[in-house]
Design a protein around this nucleic acid. Structure first.
Lengths: 206, 206, 206, 206
DNA sequence: ACCTAAGCGAGACGGTACGTCTCGTCTTGCG
DNA sequence: CGCAAGACGAGACGTACCGTCTCGCTTAGGT
């Protein structure tokens, strides 16, 4: 906690930016989105409000910066089985959202995006990027013939991501493995090439 | 617009409640969620703030009431084809969200739920209810053998609803028909019983 | 505490009036003037607000009624010595203000009179009446030749009453006897007929 | 009327304080004590409410500040005759209370002091100071042998001030000269050293 | 014996003010 | 020129009372 941080002359002090982001994350974690205010962040960071506004135009931008600062180490496995890959991806994502500030931050960002157009734009761009990224899992499966050729990989990713988002937004990121796997199964078998298979006899065929 | 609305005795005046909900909806539409405040609603409804607080504990509850007041005439068709039914459902939902205040209200409600636990609880309950409801479409298809026996109808509804929610929250409710139909197709064929079918050659191979 | 008090037909129920005045006094005593509100009185008296407003036009009138309801047993002695009579009067008044709700009530009434013209009018009338009344002490002394003929008895009473009021309003009703007696002495010897007397060598010349 | 008043850095802006006090005085004058509210003052001063609360803890403190801001130029003459001095003092005081906002402000302050202990304390201190101050008139007369040695000058001032206060509080500051002079006469001759005099043949002996 | 008139408790109504919070802007003085 | 600091105008928050209104009830007095 940088105490007595001062100006480093006529230029931007990166320590301040860092302290602000850290404080923002801490405030978000401790008091939730409703307690997240520029004032609170400034107080916590021992920074002046103008210093925050100088670097980020407002709450939304700060929130976004906090989210992007999170090092995202979601697993993008390549087991050779799309269903397994997507399951692991969701598990990893839910785990990250559950055990790190990332979930709270992302929730806040989505909320903010509903009233702030800048945040909305940023979120849309971010989401599109993630869809393409996650879509590569599907595209890979498609390349090895696991998925039918005509399938839109990005849209499959959209379905998976939407499932994850809504679980986050409705407080269901502690969903059990079986349920997650089943959901993934519905999607994967919907795009699968293995037509003869009779997948997902959920509760086990004898 | 009831002018000079007064007390009707020692009990709630439905006119006031109605005027407040109407005003809330109007404020939300005109100024968006960020401009939605109890003060603004009171002003618009020509009601005292305490009158609002008497009936709704806060912003979240009012928002929820406004949403529930919306007469929801989403189409739950029964065409005998699940894919068609779900497509029509999504189309109808997107249309309602796009052309009536419902979309803006629901966006606001989801946002509110990220910081207000009452709203979160209410939203969770509401969402669960809708999943069951929409799930009946799937259950019906299951009953007529269109969907495999082991499939969890509610969870299929969850996938469909999640797709819709995220589209709303990321400003994509003007999604084109083909894309929607494709997404539905992925899910439906994933739970379908018609194993021999080669579904969804989306862009049609000649 | 009259429970379940009801209407007694098409006329005022004295029990209600009584209960209201009693409640008003109690509220004033317990919470002071700042906590004295029609709502609080109604609550305490288990009376409807309109019942209060039906009989008293507002806070001021109620306050006045409460004050007048106090049985005032201020001593108007007739010792044959004006100074003694006035001293006893002040002592009695201070004692009453100190040991009964009367003081708090009167303070409140004076305060109310500064913003409410009805209370002001009522207070003025009341004060004028008291001046005349107390003036009789002086007039009696005048009749027996103790006070000079030209002296305005009412005005003397005014001086004495003013002294008392200001002591009440500035929290000095616990003034010690000697001081009170001295003040009275100044006034009385100012109107006295005994010109040869050298009165009130307070701190005693031997 | 300072328009577009802004912050002048991390310290109090005297313009704001001044504007607030001025507005407070104006509100008090125009709407009386009953119309005197922090909101009204803020509105009139084009100031935010927190700016007021930052500098004054509440209504009472603001009222007191407004009163103290009044430049008090009450006449303290030294004619060599105590009766004349006190008469002129009262005349000057009544005139000030009548023709400037001072009277309304002081009335309000006394009223406030009946429900607010801070105001009560401040008023008590102020009043004590004034008694000492006015007492100097008497002490001076005492020094030149006009007043008996044992007399408590402060207490005489108390009598005079009480007379004035109560006249203010009961709307009698337009009292005629003769009456005022007579009242002063009663007090002065009560403490006078001139024992042979037959003062105050008020309505004239032929 | 019925009817009507008024009082009763209750509590909702449209308002205003309270004192606190955060917003985003502004200006200082130090480094 | 960046920085911490914090005051500024603005306005929303949720609560307390204001004085008015209407309800459903009681009861008495006039018919």
């Amino acid at each position: 906690m940088a105490v007595g941080r001062k100006s480093i002359g006529a230029r931007r002090n990166p320590d301040s930016a860092e302290a602000i982001l850290e404080a923002a994350e801490a405030v978000l974690l401790e008091n939730g989105y409703s307690g997240f205010s520029i004032e609170a962040v400034a107080r916590r960071a021992r920074a002046g409000k103008p210093t925050i506004y100088r670097w980020w135009p407002g709450k939304a931008a700060l929130l976004l910066a906090v989210y992007q600062r999170q090092k995202r180490d979601v697993v993008y496995s390549d087991s050779g089985d799309l269903e397994e890959d997507l399951f692991r991806f969701l598990k990893s994502l839910f785990h990250q959202w559950h055990d790190t500030p990332a979930g709270e931050i992302f929730r806040s960002l989505v909320a903010e995006a509903q009233s702030d157009s800048d945040a909305a734009k940023a979120l849309a761009e971010y989401a599109a990027g993630r869809r393409v990224h996650t879509g590569q899992l599907v595209a890979r499966a498609q390349a090895r013939g696991e998925v039918r050729p005509g399938v839109d990989a990005t849209q499959v990713a959209d379905l998976v991501a939407s499932y994850a988002w809504v679980h986050l937004l409705t407080g269901r990121i502690d969903e059990n493995d079986e349920t997650i796997r089943r959901a993934v199964g519905y999607i994967v078998s919907g795009v699968s090439n293995r037509e003869t298979e009779a997948p997902d006899q959920t509760h086990g065929s004898p």
